[in-house]
């Protein structure tokens, strides 16, 4: 990731100086293309925001939804009061559940999977070869292929928090990303540390892990994105409104009769807002995390 960063600034610095007027003119179509695609990409988001602010009667009345003079925050107060009892579930709890599940899966997943990858990459133990082979095999088993049998096997854990977390901690893809990354770290570094008397744990925690921040970032972001949007598993396992994560809740809320679309869209805005904030703050990590996962995959 350091390479990409290093290249970009030099280009910015040199190019405009060389051929400035010509590029300016040639940039006009470029900007037009950027803008047109930008508008197309933004339109659904703009619609969601507009519908969350517009009166209910305008949600499904074509362009009326963009009539700024009618906008207000009534849908936001509406969704807060619609979702405020134990029977319907509380608005704050849907966020708390999604947040807890996501943070736990990401955090524990980072630890557990990087440890496994380290053991596979650096330690010698019986069955290592077989374990590596099995993980490569598991890499192609998508969660969807085991969702149904899991639904049956773990039925006793319906409506619990842990069943939303534990199955997703161990992850073959994460292990593989870490494993590839660790393999790229020269072994001479471990050797030097071992000479200084460090044990495998020490080498891992103090040397390998800190050197592997890009791998941690990409695994964290990939896990975060999958987990925050997780839908299939909660559909099958969660009926208690107090343990429902956000994506499931919004589909539940949208299915209510009569549908309060303005409130649904307000809920949608609230749902993505924290992610967008996280995304804007860690934008570089996001983009590099996603990008470097590909290089390894």
């Amino acid at each position: 990731m350091t390479q990409t960063q290093a290249q970009t600034p030099t280009r910015v610095a040199t190019k405009p100086r060389k051929i400035s007027r010509r590029t300016l003119a040639s940039r006009v179509p470029h900007y037009v293309a950027l803008l047109v695609t930008g508008v197309l990409f933004l339109a659904p988001v703009a619609y969601m925001i507009a519908a969350s602010l517009a009166p209910a009667s305008d949600t499904l009345a074509g362009f009326a939804v963009f009539d700024v003079t009618q906008w207000g925050f009534h849908n936001y107060s509406g969704v807060a009061s619609s979702l405020s009892t134990d029977s319907t579930g509380h608005l704050w709890r849907f966020f708390a559940v999604s947040f807890t599940v996501t943070v736990a899966v990401v955090g524990l997943g980072l630890i557990v999977n990087s440890m496994a990858a380290y053991a596979l990459s650096r330690l010698t133990w019986r069955g290592r070869g077989q374990a590596l082979f099995v993980i490569l095999l598991l890499l192609i088993v998508p969660f969807e292929a085991v969702a149904v049998p899991m639904f049956y096997l773990y039925n006793d854990a319906r409506n619990t928090l842990w069943i939303q977390i534990v199955p997703f901690i161990g992850n073959a893809l994460s292990i593989f990303i870490f494993y590839s990354f660790f393999n790229g770290i020269p072994r001479s570094i471990d050797e030097a540390a071992r000479m200084d008397g460090a044990n495998p744990w020490g080498i891992f925690w103090r040397i390998i892990a800190p050197m592997s921040k890009p791998a941690y970032a990409s695994v964290a972001i990939l896990t975060f994105l999958t987990q925050w949007g997780s839908f299939l598993w909660p559909v099958l396992m969660i009926s208690d409104p107090n343990l429902r994560p956000l994506p499931l809740q919004i589909s539940v809320f949208a299915g209510q009769l009569p549908p309060a679309w303005g409130q649904v869209m307000a809920f949608g805005v609230l749902l993505v807002l924290p992610v967008i904030v996280v995304f804007l703050i860690f934008q570089r990590w996001f983009i590099e995390g996603v990008a470097s996962s590909a290089v390894k995959g």
Partner: peptide, 11 residues
């Protein structure tokens, strides 16, 4: 992670 886990316990 600690915060997440304690929130999990609380929930």
């Amino acid at each position: 992670i600690g915060a997440g886990l304690s929130l999990a316990l609380m929930l």
